[in-house]
Amino acid sequence: MINKTIKEGIQKYSDELTAIRRKLHSEPELSWEEYETTNFVSAYLTELGIKHRKTEPTGVIAEIKGGKPGETVALRADMDALPVEELNTDLPYASKEKGKMHACGHDTHTAMLLIAAKVLNENSEDLPGNVRLIFQPAEEAAAGAKEMVKQGAVEGVDNVFGIHIWSQMPTSKVSCNPGPSFASADIFKVTFKGRGGHGAMPQDTIDAAVIASSFVMNVQSVVSRTIDPQQPAVVTVGKMEVGTRFNVIAENAVIEGTVRCFDAATRDHIEKQLQVYAENTANIYGGTAKVEYIRGTQPVINGKESAELVQQVAAEAFGEDALYYEKPTMGGEDFSFFLDEVPGSFALVGSGNPEKDTEWAHHHGKFNVDEDALVTGAELYAQYAWAYLNK
């Protein structure tokens, strides 16, 4: 199942892999702004002789044609950074862009896939099928994968595979389990309207601050009292805007939050209950409520066959002890939109190493990766494609 030439090739280009990652890390671009990253990827693929096209407004779709007929497997890497200030300013490859940082590891994904593409291209004559390469923008906006699908990223694809570097796992461990991996990630906004007035005359008012506060306290019972406890779910209120002055009773209040779960029925139920709780809470106090619910990413559900293939590949490539069980996360990942179209799976590659201070949470200003994990990720991309096409 494992191609030794691929393993040797990845090792041969390990220094180049690290250099690419560091270049991308120092030059972060936010969602839908990845113009220079797109140009870099395009130029790199051009030099390799890999046919590709740029997508709009950013992103690249490429394809390595195998020397033998067969299926098409897609490999995906996201490219965007975050509006986070880098706190690791002593790094020689620290972000050059104030307020922007690769705080989630997408720089590593792009670098790993480029080197995987280089090695696969060198062995293309032996490939029984084709490898689609998807360099995706705007994952952090939960919109890039959906747009890439619209622009043909998975047309003619039989299977899709993605990787996320993961600081919460030990370096170079691999986790890819059948079933739920990442949760759906939705956004809700509730606007309460009361009747404002003087802080000394509450009898003449309907206090939006009281309505909103009551809703925040009560809405948690949607999860604790209306959902099967064996179905994980999270309702989080992350933002609350209310009031204008210390002695003015608020007329308006706006609450924003997120909903995370793995099950479609649970998702539908929470959406309905948010409406019920908001309207009834407002009614108790004589106010009104308007609820906006925006569905973001779907849950990432790994296909059984694909996930088991990842486990087999990882065990053969890196040893049985490389396999790791990472429980499903309530984090969101728009890779789900690819899995809505074709079968596949999404793996985690560990990069946490306390000796290198790389165990910081994703999206933190001190986030960094143990670069020893890059070779593991690049080889996993390439070996998965090889194994799938030769299965």
Rank of each mutant, 00 (worst) to 15 (best):
A361N: 13
F335I: 06
C261A: 09
V154H: 01
M330D: 13
T266F: 14
T46N: 07
G105K: 07
T236V: 11
H164I: 04
K366G: 15
M112Q: 06
V375T: 04
V149D: 00
V223R: 00
A200H: 03
I163T: 00
G257V: 12
F318D: 08
V216K: 00
Q230T: 14
D78Y: 01
A116L: 07
K272A: 15
T258I: 12
P69Y: 04
V223S: 06
P57V: 00
V310M: 06
A142S: 06
E97N: 10
V216N: 02
G238L: 14
S221H: 03
I20L: 14
G156N: 02
E140I: 04
Q312M: 10
A43P: 14
V174C: 07
L389W: 03
Q312G: 10
S184T: 06
S175A: 04
E320K: 12
N390L: 03
V119H: 09
A315L: 12
I211P: 03
N247G: 05
A250Q: 08
D263G: 11
I163Q: 01
S14E: 14
N252M: 15
N280C: 08
P128Y: 01
L380P: 03
K54S: 08
A315E: 11
K290W: 15
Q11E: 15
M1C: 11
I50S: 07
A200L: 05
E359H: 08
A382Q: 04
E320T: 10
Q151A: 01
Y285M: 03
V41I: 07
P299W: 05
A145N: 00
L380K: 00
V235S: 08
E147R: 01
N283P: 13
S42F: 12
K193G: 11
V276W: 14
E27Y: 13
G152Y: 06
Q151L: 05
P354L: 10
H364A: 13
Q298V: 09
G257C: 15
D78K: 00
N353T: 11
E86N: 09
D107T: 05
G197L: 11
A111D: 07
D370E: 05
A387I: 01
A387Y: 04
N252P: 14
V131R: 00
I165G: 07
V237A: 09
T18V: 15
V375R: 04
T205K: 07
G144V: 04
F318P: 13
V219Q: 04
T72D: 03
S95N: 13
A250K: 06
G194M: 09
E56S: 04
H164G: 02
Y93P: 15
A265K: 08
N252F: 15
A378P: 11
I64K: 00
P354K: 08
A111P: 13
F337I: 08
S214I: 02
I64P: 05
I284R: 01
Y13I: 11
A307Y: 03
A307M: 02
V310F: 08
L113C: 02
I64E: 04
G332K: 08
K391L: 08
C176R: 00
D186P: 13
E71F: 02
D228N: 03
G296F: 09
E251T: 11
I294R: 10
W166S: 05
N280V: 09
A19C: 09
D78F: 01
E355W: 14
V237T: 10
A212G: 05
V259C: 15
H198W: 10
I134E: 03
M79G: 01
A315T: 10
A314W: 05
L339C: 07
I211S: 00
V300G: 02
